[in-house]
Structure formats: structure tokens, C-alpha cells
Design a protein around this nucleic acid. Structure first.
Lengths: 151, 151
DNA sequence: GTAATAATTAGAATCATTCTATGAAACTTT
DNA sequence: AAAGTTTCATAGAATGATTCTAATTATTAC
């Protein structure tokens, strides 16, 4: 399992922009996040990383994730006060969180939707981020790594 | 500072429905939440409670808040992994969270909005809750206890 | 009024996350 | 390519919100 040249370039240019360097650990963690887009927690990422890089520490995983979020490489996704999850989908999108399975799905809403909703805010507010989370039940055997698109 | 008869009735009927009893602590915590609707944390509620009920414990505050949420008396509101906040506004509404002041504002979106957005979900999903959070900057001296209504 | 049940309390435990100190690796400047 | 400086990775301790535990107190049912 290796990073594509293209992804390695995305990673190193984003890191450089933030004043950081690519390292083996950072590349590996990034690979893991790109590889299975099921919104893993820091701990899940740590476990997956260890399979191919036994010496990696949980602290490094946390450090890298924070750095990736700062550099705009991944999004941090939170539900209630559960452990944070990480998502490499950089498009503006919503999430569905299943209360039975715990699975998380990306939901692509039409782009106008996010713009419209921002316009509804009284102009005493200045928003950059709108977060939309659905909570409910997903109908069985869905694969949370497949991205759901509305027409 | 005392609960209105009407509010006491709302409280005790909701508690009874859940199999719980009203107690002095529960009434007092409920009063505190109704009284200043600025989305306080459990700890802030605890501090406010102690002013008139010195012996109350933080554990009781947590217990009651969980119970109130279960009974549908208040909503639990979370931003990122910050401490949970509590909100007695039971209408379906959004929140604005100011990243400068930390203040939280209720945002009433037109009701159709919530319905429309639920319709956009692929029908392999069954949602009961849609959470919409704005994050940004609020223009100065706004009072977070005033509810913001869109026409 | 006594037994049974429910509520409150203080303090310990938990768990995700952050911090700290240390040592290793990688650039700079010669 | 060595010496000095900075950045990184690591283990383990610390933090802080929340939950749990065990003991005490209050309330209800008989």
C-alpha cells in the first residue's frame, strides 16, 4: 500500500504551505485516511497505521491529524461528544450518522443549498462554515465508503 | 426566583411521563435553564444553581440534565468537542456559534427549510434529527438570549 | 412508622485529547 | 561532512468533561 505520486504531491505542498515537512509517518497516516474513507477516529487510524508501521505512536497520529486539519488536507467531523472522526472529502458536504450501526456517510447536497442557507442568516452574522448533520437509521448493508450524491 | 406554575407543570408532567419525580433540585435546575437562555454548560449551570441552593452537587446537575434531555425538556447542543450546552428552545432551529466571543445564538430558519432538506436525503436513510450549525463571527454587542427570527 | 424505592452526594474512575520532556533525524552554514 | 539549530516522534504524564460507585438521605407504599 503506497501513496500515489499525485497524492504525495498534494500532501507535501499543503504541508510546506503550512511550514511543515513531509515525513514517513505523515505520508503513512495520510495514505490510511485516503485509503478507507469511513470516517475513522484517531484511535482507529492509529490501529490501522500500526499494521505497516509498528513503531508509530498515538501522539504522532494526533499531532498529524491536527496538522492535516490546519493545512486543509482533511476535515474533522464531530457528532455529539464522540471521538472526532476524520474525512478527506474536501467538498462542502453534509453527514449522516446512523444511530444503529454508528456508520457515517458523506451526503452531497446541491451546492446552492449551502449558499441559500447562508443567505438566511441575519446580516449581523458572518459565517464561513455551515455544518449539516443528519441523525437517524440507515437501511442495512450500505457501504459507508461510497459517497452519496444527490442527482 | 421561582418557577412559574405553568413551567412547574410542564416539568412535572414531562418527568412523570419518563417515570421520574420532580424534586427541589430538578425544579431549581430547570428554573436556571429557563431563566437565562444563553446555552450554558453543565458547569455554568452548576455555578448558577449554587447561588440559591448551596448544597447541590455537580453530579446532580449532570444527572438532571441527562434526564431533562431524555424527557424532551431541553436540547443538548454540541460544538466540536467543547463541553455540552443546554437549550430550552424546543422548536426545530439552528445555532450560530461565534468563534470570537464563544456566544451561541438560536437561529430560527423557516420551517419549510428543515422539511426540504430532509427530502433531499436518499431514501435509504431515515432521519429524525437534522442539525444545522453556523460558525463564524457575530457583530459585537449582541445579546445571545434574544432569539433571532427570520421573518 | 417501617420497609422499599428513588434521589442526592462526594469522590473515584474513565476516556479522548493535549502536554512535556527526551532523544533522533534533518537541514544550515561552514 | 562536522557543529549547531530546528523540527519530529515518542512514551508517558496531565487535563478536563463526563460517568460511575457506594454511601447517605428523602420519599412513597403499606
Amino acid at each position: 500500500m503506497k501513496l500515489l505520486i499525485r497524492d504525495r504531491e498534494i500532501l507535501s505542498s499543503a504541508l510546506n504551505k503550512g511550514g511543515y515537512r513531509p515525513t514517513p509517518q505523515r505520508e503513512h497516516i495520510y495514505l490510511i485516511i485516503l485509503n478507507k474513507r469511513d470516517h475513522p477516529t484517531a484511535d482507529e487510524i492509529y490501529v490501522r497505521c500500526k499494521k505497516e508501521m509498528q513503531g508509530i505512536s498515538l501522539a504522532t497520529v494526533y499531532n498529524c491529524l491536527e496538522m492535516f486539519v490546519e493545512c486543509g488536507l482533511v476535515k474533522q467531523v464531530n457528532f455529539e461528544r464522540e471521538p472526532s472522526r476524520y474525512c478527506p472529502n474536501l467538498m462542502e458536504h453534509a453527514h449522516f450518522h446512523c444511530k444503529n450501526t454508528g456508520k457515517v456517510f458523506d451526503i452531497d447536497l446541491p451546492n446552492e443549498y449551502f449558499n441559500e442557507i447562508k443567505k438566511l442568516l441575519p446580516n449581523s452574522f458572518n459565517t464561513d462554515i455551515v455544518e449539516i448533520n443528519f441523525r437517524g437509521i440507515c437501511k442495512t448493508e450500505m457501504d459507508e465508503t461510497s459517497q452519496l450524491v444527490n442527482e
